[in-house]
């Protein structure tokens, strides 16, 4: 199944198949290791539901839902 990261629920994981969005944000995501083929695991959501915390390349990264919606993954 394919969906964007903001649609994930806690405990789900997937493999990145594409990153879209504004250039600056895209670059930041790449730099943080979110490139095609990277595995992402949704750890947690903030008390107000946004931002979210994920594990990628064995470290913890937080990002907003708006930024997570730029990342499309194949659910594993």
């Amino acid at each position: 199944m394919i969906k964007t990261l903001d649609k994930f629920s806690i405990g789900e994981s997937g493999v990145v198949i594409s990153v879209s969005g504004e250039r600056k944000i895209k670059r930041r995501l790449y730099d943080m290791g979110i490139t095609n083929g990277a595995e992402i695991y949704l750890r947690k959501k903030a008390p107000l539901g946004d931002p979210i915390e994920v594990t990628v390349r064995s470290y913890e990264l937080s990002l907003r839902n708006s930024e997570a919606s730029c990342i499309t993954l194949e659910v594993t």
């Binding site: 944000i25 915390e53 990264l61």
Partner: peptide
Amino acid sequence: PPFIMELPA
């Protein structure tokens, strides 16, 4: 500003 940041251990 974007909020793509590391949560350090």
